[in-house]
């Protein structure tokens, strides 16, 4: 009997190890006070409790006290240990949570059950908000099983159609985050549909300008290259076939997407079709802002919180060095 060897299925092992590593790096240090704006549904309140139980944060719940207690009772959640700041409604909760951060009582801000816009409106308020000289941006931290390193995707949630100057800030925000996560010199791929400059595609022109900004020190702490098509950014083989010689091609740590729609679809495709974990954090404000979404697993919620906590610790450490 002579038979063809049956072709075996390909097997891919997904360990979700990178997010666990993040959590391990946060272990054994005191929790960070977090102001939670309007945690008035079971999901957001449950998330806060998870993060507190993980030892990451000490929550301050900002919202209508009676409603928070009612939600906790209905969902059988124990919030007895947490401070509650009573305010009448979600708008007031956003304003008060931001005020607590400004007053130094909280070092982290977290979104509860309210619209992202409602919270961000208070964050960016000129005199009472948490703005810095930097543009605020959102970074997805993705653990993609088929990719050999963590992948930061930005901005897929906050900046709809960023200008060149805004893209500069978005890149720098992501670079700073990559440093905190332990990537010393991250490789930034500026994504477009092609790897050559085409005046009809604005993202390729922006990419060229951003690379020059990196050459001239307007973007620091990373190797920046673009435009790159997605395949050339993440696949060394695809980059080789195209003959692209670049220190970034095929091994990007950070992907800058042209606009929110492209980024949002990319991140969600990776989550829903490629089994990726996606944690998210808003950076560029005076403190990190944790936005978790309904679809997140416990693992990604905890990861979002862990990376925010690492940012706070890094900021504290930098402040100590400055003072000394």
């Amino acid at each position: 009997m002579c038979r063809p060897r049956v072709e075996l299925p390909e097997v891919r092992l997904s360990r979700h190890q990178r997010f666990r590593d993040l959590l391990i790096r946060t272990a054994g240090q005191p929790p960070i006070p977090v102001a939670v704006a309007h945690p008035c549904d079971a999901l957001s309140l449950g998330a806060v409790i998870e993060m507190a139980l993980a030892g990451l944060v000490t929550p301050i719940l900002v919202g209508p006290q009676a409603k928070i207690h009612a939600v906790a009772a209905a969902a059988n959640l124990d919030i007895g240990a947490f401070r509650i700041v009573d305010v009448p409604h979600s708008h007031a909760a956003a304003a008060k949570a931001v005020a607590l951060v400004r007053a130094g009582e909280a070092e982290l801000l977290m979104k509860g059950a309210l619209h992202t816009n409602e919270l961000m409106h208070e964050v960016v308020a000129r005199d009472t908000g948490l703005r810095t000289e930097r543009r605020l941006s959102h970074v997805y931290l993705m653990d993609v099983p088929s990719y050999p390193r963590p992948l930061l995707i930005t901005d897929a949630a906050l900046n709809i159609a960023p200008t060149l100057q805004e893209k500069r800030d978005i890149i720098q925000n992501a670079i700073d985050l990559a440093h905190i996560m332990g990537t010393e010199t991250p490789r930034v791929a500026i994504l477009s549909a092609v790897e050559t400059i085409d005046p009809a595609l604005r993202s390729t022109l922006d990419a060229a300008a951003l690379c020059k900004m990196a050459d001239r020190g307007q973007i620091t702490g990373a190797i920046v290259d673009g435009p790159l098509a997605f395949d050339n950014a993440v696949s060394p083989q695809a980059a080789r076939q195209k003959g692209i010689v670049s220190p970034v091609a095929g091994q990007a740590d950070i992907l800058l997407v042209p606009d929110l729609e492209a980024g949002n679809m990319l991140a969600k495709q990776l989550s829903f079709l490629a089994g990726a974990d996606a944690a998210g954090v808003v950076v560029g404000a005076t403190v990190p802002i944790i936005l978790t979404s309904r679809a997140d697993s416990q693992r990604t919620r905890i990861a979002s919180c862990a990376v925010a906590v690492l940012m706070v610790r890094a900021r504290r450490a930098a402040a100590t060095v400055d003072a000394a």
Partner: peptide, 15 residues
Amino acid sequence: MDFNPAAHDPMIENR
């Protein structure tokens, strides 16, 4: 991922 790099012969035959 190829978990059995030794097995590249396309045919298998018994005795």
